[in-house]
């Protein structure tokens, strides 16, 4: 008991010594406390790893609006257009929200989309720090796809047939909008991001 109290004091002191971030940033960035909403896709109990080598549960995205699509880096037809559409959605957002929202691409293809392959993709498409390129084991990919309503399968060529879907999540990770297909629907998708990204 005493040891615990001592440890707490030390930790508290250490926290107090670290340079505190400006108040505004601190409050804006703090993830919401409490359990994840029961209707949130962040209920998914799986780890996703980024091209930068960081591994996190999806719930790490909590607190920000999210524009999310599933893709694979070697896709020649639909995926480049999905990314272009996500960029177009971003371009339609007010400046403040443009960098606060997260733009997330999750790969269907954990075998070929290694962290290095994803990093290459980031360079090729000039995707900045607001973009997260994620991979996970095939079970987590299947569960995320099921939560989003994305159907896919690996073809004998090694490519993936997949539905083309951009999903907008609110800061709790609840699906608030789905843009199906390619092209069109960008204004509606952007409005959905604005609606959930307003001052909380």
């Amino acid at each position: 008991m005493k040891a615990t109290a001592w440890l707490c004091t030390v930790l508290f002191a250490a926290a107090a010594m670290a340079a505190p971030p400006p108040m505004e940033d601190c409050c804006k960035e703090a993830p919401p406390a409490g359990p994840v909403s029961a209707r949130s896709i962040y209920q998914l109990d799986a780890t996703f790893c980024s091209d930068t080598g960081q591994c996190l549960p999806l719930a790490a995205l909590r607190g920000r609006p999210v524009v999310l699509a599933m893709f694979f880096a070697s896709c020649g037809y639909a995926c480049p257009r999905l990314v272009t559409d996500m960029q177009a959605i971003r371009g339609r957002l007010p400046a403040e929200l443009r960098d606060r929202a997260a733009y997330v691409l999750v790969s269907f293809d954990p075998d070929r989309d290694t962290p290095a392959a994803l990093a290459d993709y980031r360079r090729q498409r000039a995707l900045d720090g607001a973009w997260m390129l994620l991979r996970a084991d095939s079970g987590a990919v299947a569960e995320l796809a099921a939560l989003l309503g994305v159907k896919y399968r690996r073809e004998p060529s090694g490519n993936f047939a997949h539905s083309n879907l951009i999903t907008i999540l609110n800061p709790e990770g609840e699906i608030v909008h789905r843009r199906e297909g390619l092209g069109g629907g960008l204004d509606e998708a952007a409005q959905a991001v604005v609606a959930v990204g307003k001052g909380k």
Binding site: H162, S163, G181
Partner: peptide, 23 residues
């Protein structure tokens, strides 16, 4: 879910290539 008789089941009408790449 790979038994793709139709495309994505919510709110679409079948095998539109734009909706369902490869289907």
């Amino acid at each position: 879910s790979t038994a793709m008789v139709t495309g994505e089941s919510r709110g679409d009408s079948g095998l539109d290539r734009d909706l369902f790449c490869g289907a």
